[in-house]
Amino acid sequence: MASLRLQHFATHHVGPLAVSVAAAECVCVEGASGSGKTLLLRAIADLDPHRGEAHCDDVACSAMPAPAWRRSVALVAAESQWWSDLVGDHFEHGVDAEWLARLDLPPAAMTWQVARCSTGERQRLALLRTLMHAPAVLLLDEPTGNLDERNTRRVESLLADYRLQRQAALLWVSHDKGQIGRVAQRHFVLDQGQLHECGRR
């Protein structure tokens, strides 16, 4: 069981805001470009200084060492980043073969050169790289931004199963109304630094 709770949470551009994502819940955030969605996710992952407090499972961010917090509350950036030549070098604990297959990637993907992967392949691999750390909370910054319709659905379905099996909390930034309708239990618009909840389903 994992939940994410923000209190008086504020960064330079966003907040102060209070919001929580329950275990096994997916909350979507949309907003115009520049509204601070990415900055909000970065601050929750404690990559940017912020005021207020974030709790994961009632443990405060400030009470945990930063790397441990970031393993539990994992940010998947919109643009994936790679520091080694081979894809496999980025997977310390190997990769779940079933997950690879569900994202339409062959087992040989681990031996691929990062430079030769397409943007979409990299995005799916970067998601798996984070999932292999088994985070309790996922902060997803447009995780299907570079994917076609089929692969978008694959990622959505994998994330839905992950959320239910691990009782993980998902905070998902998306531009796509259709996607928000498919994946979110609740959904907010970020505007003027504040989150406004849209009609509950």
Partner: peptide
């Protein structure tokens, strides 16, 4: 130059020492 890479390593739970080791 490698700001995004370093931050992405931090986001994966690497500590600062490891993220900037290269």
């Amino acid at each position: 130059e490698k700001r995004q890479i370093i931050e992405s390593r931090l986001a994966l739970g690497h500590d600062a020492r490891r993220a900037i080791a290269d």
